[in-house]
Design a protein around this nucleic acid. Structure first.
Length: 193
DNA sequence: GCGACAG
DNA sequence: ATCTTGTCGC
């Protein structure tokens, strides 16, 4: 995928959690300044869960609540770091692509585990990565965000190349496995904040 | 038919 | 994702 994103001043983390035995979906978006990574603002949305969890169809379950949360923001972000896959998806359209197209905001998929694709052993060194492949296609990257942790599955969402995606993800990683954007969003979506 | 399977 | 005790390592 080609890059077509402008200057990134505001970067957002997106995550979703559930309440009431999964009957309520809670989405959180955390907007951080870039490259400082200071929390600027956040929005949370709660909606009745309208779709079950089906691998490959995550967008139908989580996107509605996320879109509602995004509408509440004063400052729209220039880039979205989504919890889940971008094009590293059976039909090359994971939730990061879905949110990017629907909002027009460039996006990146940052997943904690693999959905599809094959890859080799990633060196145990911060920043090292290997391509995630499906047949002849490179659909993403397996990234060692920190030494001694399980790798992240990064892929293009909307308007961001894989190389650029890796650059932004690493720019958001400080002292933990997950980027700060995702950590904020996760904390907010978990209600512990 | 038997596994694999984002969150 | 969510539910949860103990445990290993810096």
């Amino acid at each position: 995928m080609r890059d077509c994103l402008g200057e990134v001043r505001w970067i957002a983390g997106v995550d979703v959690g559930f309440e009431r035995r999964n009957t309520v979906t809670r989405a959180a978006v955390a907007v951080l300044s870039f490259p400082d990574l200071e929390l600027e603002e956040y929005a949370i949305s709660r909606r009745p869960t309208g779709f079950p969890y089906v691998p490959g169809l995550l967008s139908f379950r989580e996107a509605p609540a996320v879109l509602e949360a995004l509408e509440k923001l004063r400052q729209l972000p220039d880039l979205l770091l989504c919890d889940g896959q971008g094009i590293a998806h059976p039909r090359r359209f994971g939730i990061a692509c879905h949110l990017g197209i629907l909002t027009g905001i460039p996006s990146i998929g940052v997943a904690k585990t693999r959905l599809i694709g094959r890859h080799g052993k990633v060196p145990d060194e911060r920043g090292s990565w290997l391509p995630l492949c499906d047949g002849d296609e490179v659909i993403g990257a397996v990234l060692r965000s920190r030494q001694g942790v399980k790798p992240l599955f990064v892929s293009s969402g909307h308007c961001v190349s894989l190389e650029t995606a890796l650059q932004y993800v690493m720019a958001c990683v400080t002292r933990f496995r997950l980027p700060e954007t995702t950590r904020w969003a996760h904390r907010l979506a978990s209600g512990s904040c």
